[in-house]
């Protein structure tokens, strides 16, 4: 029984990590007032860029070095998601396009990019079969050296690849930056009331660009974690599924707080796979349980709008374009 619970917690965390990257990234973006619905697309691109980088490296050398495997694919992933975020920021900030439409187009585009290269990469190199980057995947999956020595506890909480810990560290650091630093204060002010932030001498445009960029890059790591650690270097089209949207749901569930996003992601990750751990569950009930995260999110959304507690609302200017000389 204990080992089942332990393995469930372990699996919940593994499922939760991509969601945590995605939701932390989206929180940082939304705090600047940008509702980036392109996050699911960005996560796809983050994943496939890492795959492409790793593939090219593995195919250009005789013997791979784990650390270089990681560096190459990590850089490729970050560049990919940064470019995606720049498209969003350029269209919504500089060209003042509608955020919803831009975000949805970006998701269409990003999922397309992911599936296209995932499906065609091998053909470009005249190979057949499916993508599988064993060396890179292995490098990512390497657990803390002492994890297995700590028995059940170690196996449950310390057996993950380094990206998993990175996700938690990023969420905690984001929380500290948002709540305890000037940069965070300025960023939150922009999301609440850009005109006030502008009047206080904050460069609204630069903050919005940077937070969208950094948020997107963090979210992209979620895609990278999924393809490198979770599936161990293998790509299957649409394999990432709707996790990007689930990440956006977590943003609401966590009330726009990165620290709460950590636990929320693990809860949502747990709900994603809990059906495997409940004995005797019919396959139809499993689908109902998978519905729970979204249902809970809606309830949270409705409750916060009904209670109208100021601290729990979405950033006030979320989704709106800011233009100074408006009169």
């Amino acid at each position: 029984m204990l080992s089942t619970i332990a393995s469930f917690i372990n699996a919940a965390i593994i499922q939760g990590i991509p969601l945590l990257f995605g939701s932390t990234g989206e929180i940082i973006t939304e705090k600047s007032g940008n509702l980036n619905l392109g996050i699911p697309g960005i996560m796809y691109v983050g994943g496939i860029s890492g795959i492409i980088g790793g593939y090219i490296y593995e195919h250009s050398v005789e013997k791979t070095v784990p650390i270089i495997c990681i560096l190459v694919s990590l850089c490729a992933s970050l560049i990919g998601s940064a470019l995606m975020s720049l498209i969003y920021a350029f269209l919504t900030q500089t060209l003042k396009a509608n955020q919803n439409v831009t975000g949805l187009a970006l998701t269409t585009f990003g999922v397309g990019v992911g599936n296209f290269f995932g499906g065609s990469l091998l053909k470009f190199f005249n190979e057949s079969g499916s993508i599988s980057l064993l060396d890179t995947g292995l490098a990512y999956k390497k657990a803390l050296p002492f994890a297995s020595k700590l028995g059940l506890f170690g196996n449950t909480f310390l057996s993950f690849g380094f990206l998993a810990y990175t996700a938690i560290i990023i969420a905690i650091v984001s929380s500290i930056i948002l709540n305890k630093t000037r940069v965070g204060l300025n960023l939150r002010a922009i999301g609440e009331n850009p005109a006030t932030a502008d009047a206080a001498g904050i460069n609204v445009n630069r903050y919005k660009y940077l937070s969208t960029l950094i948020g997107g890059m963090i979210a992209g790591l979620g895609g990278l974690y999924f393809v490198m650690d979770y599936t161990a270097g293998a790509w299957t089209n649409n394999g990432f599924g709707d996790r990007g949207w689930l990440a956006i749901a977590i943003v609401i569930f966590a009330l726009w707080k990165p620290k709460s996003a950590i636990l929320s992601s693990f809860i949502f990750g747990g709900l994603y796979i809990i059906c495997v751990y409940i004995p005797g569950l019919s396959s139809s009930s499993k689908e109902i349980i998978k519905m729970l995260p979204y249902l809970v999110t809606i309830i949270v959304l409705v409750v916060i709008s009904a209670r109208k507690k100021k601290e729990h609302q979405p950033p006030q200017s979320l989704g709106l374009t800011y233009f100074r000389e408006e009169r």
Partner: peptide, 21 residues
Amino acid sequence: LNTSIADILTGIIIFFIIGCE
């Protein structure tokens, strides 16, 4: 090639049209 090329092309065309507004 993979059929997802359609989504890429759709995305690009939409980017241009919303940008031109």
